[in-house]
């Protein structure tokens, strides 16, 4: 008999992923029927439907999938490395750091009279700025976590760093012009629908590399789970592997945040839901389950945020927050043995 856990990983979650991917492609302000979509795929239907599908919907669904995988895997890595069940790029202020990087990039280009670079340079600059900002915060958190074992204190510090980044962004906004300001504000709303093909290509390659890296570091994550001293006494070069894992989480968060805005609570909530479904702490199961569930969740949130059939849509990070916060509350209560 196949174990229940593997059933989830090989069957249930992949099917869910497929269903939500198709749903995300078909549902939007214009609802496309499956048969029309199929005829567009076979090339029979070359109307506006195929334009919507290929130019907008499919890249958007791929983006949602990639962002979901990137953020949930980053969350899992951070929870394990910091040994903190509530660690996640958003809560620890890493997303805010990425936001500060983006704000500096978008807003200061104008201050210095440089017209925004175009094409590849702009996309790469944007992603690079976000990664630098994310890395700066991650460095601070690493430095602090080595001296501080208190879970709650670290979260409060994460909030402080987030606020500090926010204050700096406000300052930048005050001195920037209307056009740059608007593009920044639009970015903060979070959207998986505005990525260019080049951005999507960057995002997908980063996530793919991230997935390969995380699978290769499964054993290390399992050892780090019980603490660095144990990891070392088991023959692991803790400093090196810890740094590599943090860098991977930072780059994935940075790039996802750069192109889609700060999307919260996916990183903290998804790994916990994976643990609850599988009743597992072993990363051999958690890593694939978290990736799949992250993709499913982000696609689901995107479907909801599109308000199918309506002209309006919601910022996707409001949806992820509304879905993710109850999970965070549950985790806190369990940690305090309330539930």
């Amino acid at each position: 008999m196949v174990e229940r856990k593997w059933l989830y990983i090989y069957l249930v979650l992949p099917i869910l992923l497929l269903i939500f991917f198709v749903a995300d492609v078909l549902l939007g302000s214009e609802i496309i029927s499956l048969s029309r979509a199929l005829s567009a795929f076979s090339g029979e239907d070359a109307s506006y439907v195929s334009a919507i599908l290929f130019r907008y919907r499919i890249p958007k669904a791929l983006t949602a999938l990639a962002v979901g995988v990137a953020l949930s895997i980053s969350g899992l890595q951070m929870q394990t490395v910091f040994r903190n069940p509530l660690a996640d790029p958003y809560i620890l202020g890493v997303s805010s750091g990425a936001g500060l990087g983006v704000a500096m990039f978008l807003l200061t280009c104008n201050v210095f009279g440089i017209s925004i670079l175009s094409g590849a340079m702009q996309n790469l600059g944007h992603a690079f700025a976000a990664c630098i900002g994310a890395a700066a915060v991650m460095l601070v958190m690493l430095f602090i976590s080595a001296r501080l074992r208190d879970i709650m204190a670290m979260l409060i510090l994460g909030m402080m760093i987030g606020s500090a980044a926010g204050a700096l962004v406000s300052l930048l906004q005050y001195f920037s012009d209307a056009v740059a300001l608007k593009s920044y504000v639009m970015w903060t709303m979070g959207s998986v629908g505005n990525v260019t093909n080049l951005q999507l290509a960057i995002l997908l390659s980063v996530v793919l590399l991230g997935i390969i890296f995380v699978i290769a570091s499964i054993k290390t994550l399992n050892v780090l789970m019980i603490g660095e001293d144990y990891a070392r006494s088991l023959g692991y070069n803790v400093k090196k592997s810890r740094t590599a894992i943090i860098v991977a989480a930072t780059v994935m968060t940075g790039v996802a945040t750069a192109f889609c805005g700060p999307v919260g609570f996916i990183g903290v909530a998804v790994p916990h839901v994976a643990r609850m479904i599988l009743h597992e702490a072993d990363h051999r199961y958690l890593v694939p389950a978290t990736m799949l569930l992250g993709g499913v969740t982000m696609l689901f949130c995107d479907v909801l945020s599109q308000l199918p059939g309506q002209q309006a849509s919601l910022p996707v990070n409001t949806v992820t927050a509304l879905l993710g916060i109850p999970v965070v509350v549950l985790v806190i209560m369990r940690n305090q043995k309330i539930v």
Binding site: P85, A216, I218, K219, N222, V223, M225, I226, G227, Y230, L234, G235, R275, M276, L278, H279, E280, A281, D282, R284, R334
Partner: peptide, 24 residues
């Protein structure tokens, strides 16, 4: 060591890690 959902067998089996393959 406080890790949610970590089974006793799995915790003890971490002791075998110096001897197992890359996937553990």
């Amino acid at each position: 060591v406080k890790v949610g959902y970590l089974k006793v067998f799995d915790l003890v089996s971490l002791g075998r890690y110096p001897y197992t393959s890359w996937f553990g």
